[in-house]
């Protein structure tokens, strides 16, 4: 089945819309429903639309990193988010550390955000890899 002209020309726009929403959902997850997992799924949906309309090769080119590498990057970020805990010799792995820079409002930055970002990338990579392996056939 050949994708329609409308889908093909709008898929890039859709992709960026979905990525924007996914980043919003990722950041919103701090104190409201949302977070890395659902954000990653939304972004993966964007990639899926792109892959369906333009083909697997175009989607891989657009991602630059192989989906498995994306997943690896996510795991690395998530694992690294637990390491600052060791700055305190008594604290166990993954103990939260916070940083509140004041730029007009107090930004609640900290290791949980880093962890969520890792989850986001891992989910995006895994779901994309699975989806692309199905598109291949």
């Amino acid at each position: 089945m050949k994708p329609t002209l409308i889908l093909r020309s709008s898929s890039a726009l859709l992709l960026w819309c979905l990525v924007a929403v996914s980043v919003y959902v990722l950041l919103r997850g701090h104190n409201a429903p949302g977070g890395g997992f659902i954000g990653g799924l939304i972004a993966a949906a964007g990639v899926a639309v792109y892959a369906v309309s333009r083909g697997r090769a175009a989607a891989l080119r657009m991602l630059r990193l192989h989906p498995a590498a994306l997943c690896g990057l996510g795991l690395l970020v998530a694992a690294a988010s637990g390491l600052p805990a060791f700055l305190d010799s008594a604290a166990a792995y993954l103990t939260h550390r916070w940083w509140f820079p004041d730029v007009g409002i107090q930004l609640p930055l900290g290791t949980p955000l880093l962890f969520d970002l890792g989850v986001y990338l891992t989910v995006l990579g895994t779901v994309t890899a699975m989806f692309l392996s199905l598109v291949e056939k």
Binding site: F37, T126, M130, S133, L134, K137
Partner: peptide, 19 residues
């Protein structure tokens, strides 16, 4: 979440098996 991953893998495996 874990079940989702397992089912996705199982379906890919069954598709591969069918091929």
């Amino acid at each position: 979440v874990i079940g989702f991953g397992l089912v996705a893998f199982t379906l890919v495996l069954l598709l591969k098996g069918f091929i």
